[in-house]
Design a protein around this nucleic acid. Structure first.
Length: 631
RNA sequence: GCGCCCGUAGCUCAGCGGAUAGAGUACUUGGCUUCGAACCAAGUGGUCGGGGGUUCGAAUCCCUCCGGGCGUACCA
């Protein structure tokens, strides 16, 4: 008891990062998941990675370390291949053939390799689907939902800076990417033995809020939405659009700048200095924003271990400026701002951290956040899931923080900006200020409405029955799944032009395709009569190519996850799951499961179905796609 | 101007030094008296933005030009 109290006490004591005093850690939003690193295997223990390393070893022993196992293109009927260009040129075909014969003899002991064939300059390696398939199926059956987990992180803490909507504005489709990618990466890292902290770094501070505050004081009573019964967020948005448009007009005609903007910045100054009236309005806006955002996060299945907005770090801001000045990294410039300078030939421009009126900037808050996070969580890495347009900015911040850490003898966490391309509308860049936006809530509602229509059509014609309550739930899952998947389907880096038809696609390479595949498998097990349990002792049998392909595909999940994590690219997992479903559906079409006559074949097919749903569910969970039982 | 990103099938995208450049979508065709047709199968569709180079080999690397996006704020 005493120990716990002491621990709590010491946790509450302020600590320092260099010369920066860090306040006590605020409470968490939800508990941090501690991955069971000792219970999950190493990636090399999974079937296919293990086989690959064995084969690679044999190859290297004969052809040197330069040969590398690779996946052949689709039209080649082979599982792995190596290019033997060099050995063929240097040692000649006869020597190579001789070595391949040795290799065949050596590998046939393992029985996982069915055959080798030299199709110059490639050596194609075919696995035995029976042997490998059996092994993969058994691994999946043994591990269940742990299949695909492996320990790469060993419990190290990784912070994801994700979602980060601005308060007093509705979330738009632009926030979707950070939210969805951050969530998927968080789950993927947990799956790989990392202790994950997703921190929603709300944009709840800064000049733009001052401008809004000023607008509220000027015109707040003229906006119907701000009265009782209205939607206050819509009202605030209306004010924000109006004041920005008037500022633009003023700046177009005035050489001395906009009076409205000046007043807005003054308002922010009041807020930052703690003016009670300003704080009260700010607090109210924050609260109503969080209620609205919370609803969207709930629908998307987003998890945040912490929700620490920019405002959490306000008390640290003056120290940040002093600390950076203290070690000679920052100084006053001729405009009376405080800026961090960089080498002229470093391609990094100087970074202002304090305005001439003494108020803070985005960078000041981000530097404070980084210092606080380092003290509170001792992370190995901090990953910022933020749009690519801020690339240069994050270079400035990371470089500044690293230099400061170096100057005061602190070891900074590794920092990485995992950026994504901008979401644009067919009309061009989205802008809340110009009112040219698509709200996230509307996208979800529209997706769910379309899904409901399709579910209702199916309810009439399909053999599956849905109750009214089920239809509501299914429509929500399918609509949300379609939207989430559309964000995770393509590479992060590329910009996206928002098109309704693509986001709301329910066929082909889409979220509902994965959900539908899983629902089909569920139907099989629903029909499996009581007492007809799968006999796992019956030897597993592969009847045809479709089954062989499916079984091998099932074995690829761990590698797909590994790729997705090392490249911070969830789309690699989406691609894998699409391929898995495609393989399953081809199998399903041609090979009856329940009505298979041969009991061994029937059991083997049931096991393939079971393994597929295990893998599929795990993958969908990792991406954050809802998994309806029926649809 | 400078820096970063991107031009691949009508459209949306994979592939990023190696075998006949692949998917989805759209279009055309075939498949529900056998476990769910939100599915499956097949076909049409590409001098990988243009031009140089490096290489045995280039969509992939280098140079250059053209086209588009983003950044280069006392915004975030």
């Amino acid at each position: 008891m005493a120990d716990t109290n002491n621990e709590r006490l010491s946790e509450q004591l302020p600590t320092r990062y260099g010369d920066i005093e860090v306040p006590p850690r605020p409470p968490e939003n939800q508990p941090i998941y501690e991955p069971p690193v000792h219970e999950i295997p190493d990636i090399s223990e999974y079937d296919l990675p293990y086989i690959q390393s064995q084969v690679q070893e044999e190859l290297e022993a004969r052809f040197g370390s330069e040969v590398k196992l690779q996946r052949p293109p689709d039209h080649i009927d082979s599982d792995y291949a190596v290019r033997l260009f060099k050995p063929l040129a240097e040692a000649g075909p006869e020597v190579v053939n001789q070595k391949i014969n040795e290799l065949t003899a050596s590998l046939s002991d393992e029985s996982v390799v069915k055959g080798l064939s030299l199709e110059s300059p490639y050596l194609n390696i075919r696995l035995s689907p029976e042997v490998v398939g059996t092994s993969v199926i058994r691994t999946i059956e043994a591990l269940g939902e742990k299949y695909g987990s492996f320990n790469a992180g060993d419990g190290a803490t990784v912070i994801f800076d994700t979602s980060s909507p601005n308060i007093a504005k509705q979330m738009t489709v632009a926030h979707l990417r950070s939210t969805v990618i951050g969530e998927a990466l968080g789950r993927l890292y947990q799956n790989c033995g990392y202790r994950v902290i997703r921190d929603n770094h709300l944009g709840d501070w800064g000049s733009q809020f001052g401008i809004l505050g000023h607008a509220y004081e000027l015109w707040g009573d003229q906006v119907p939405e701000l009265r009782d019964g209205g939607d206050p967020i819509k009202g605030l948005l209306e004010l924000y659009v109006r004041i920005n448009s008037e500022i633009e007009d003023e700046e177009a005609v005035s050489e001395t700048g906009s009076e409205l903007r000046r007043k807005g910045l003054e308002w922010f100054g009041k807020l930052e200095r703690g003016d009670p009236k300003a704080r009260e309005l700010w607090r109210w806006a924050l609260d109503i924003s969080m209620v609205e955002a919370g609803q969207i996060y709930k629908r998307l299945g987003s998890n945040f271990e912490y929700i620490l907005g920019e405002s959490e770090y306000v008390q640290m801001l003056p120290q940040i400026v002093e600390a950076l000045k203290g070690v000679g990294l920052a100084s006053k410039d001729d405009l009376d701002r405080v800026v961090v300078g960089f080498d002229e030939n470093s391609n990094i421009k100087s970074l202002p951290i304090q305005k001439s009126d003494g108020t803070s900037l985005y960078a000041t808050r981000d530097l404070a956040t980084l210092a606080a996070r380092s003290v509170w969580f001792k992370p190995e890495k901090v990953i910022y899931v933020v749009g690519g347009e801020q690339k240069h900015y994050f270079q400035q911040v990371f470089e500044t923080f690293n230099r400061y850490s170096d100057a005061v003898g602190e070891t900074p966490p590794e920092t990485e900006h995992v950026y994504f391309g901008m979401v644009k509308l067919p009309e061009g860049k989205m802008s809340t200020r110009k009112g040219n936006v698509i709200f996230l809530e509307d996208v979800l509602d529209e997706a769910v409405a379309r899904a409901r229509k399709i579910v209702q059509e199916h309810a009439g014609e399909s053999s599956v029955e849905f109750s009214e309550a089920e239809i509501d739930k299914i429509a929500e899952d399918v609509g949300v799944g379609a939207v989430v998947y559309s964000e995770l389907r393509q590479g992060r880096t590329r910009g996206i032009e928002f098109k309704w038809d693509e986001v709301l696609s329910f066929k082909g390479n889409s979220g509902p395709y994965l959900q539908y595949t899983n629902a089909r498998i569920n139907a099989i097990f629903r029909k499996l009569e009581e007492g007809q349990e799968i006999d796992f002792d019956t030897p597993f049998k592969i009847s045809d190519d479709l089954e062989a392909k499916l079984a091998l595909k099932l074995g690829e999940l761990p590698e797909a996850i590994q790729d997705a994590v090392t490249k911070n690219e969830p789309s690699l997992l989406s691609e894998y799951l699409y391929g898995l479903c495609s393989a399953f559906n081809s199998f399903y079409k041609n090979n009856p499961v329940l009505s298979a006559e041969d009991p061994q074949v029937r059991t083997s097919r049931l096991r393939l179905c079971l393994a597929t749903t295990t893998v599929l569910r795990r993958g969908m969970y990792l991406l954050g796609i809802p998994i309806p039982e029926k649809m």
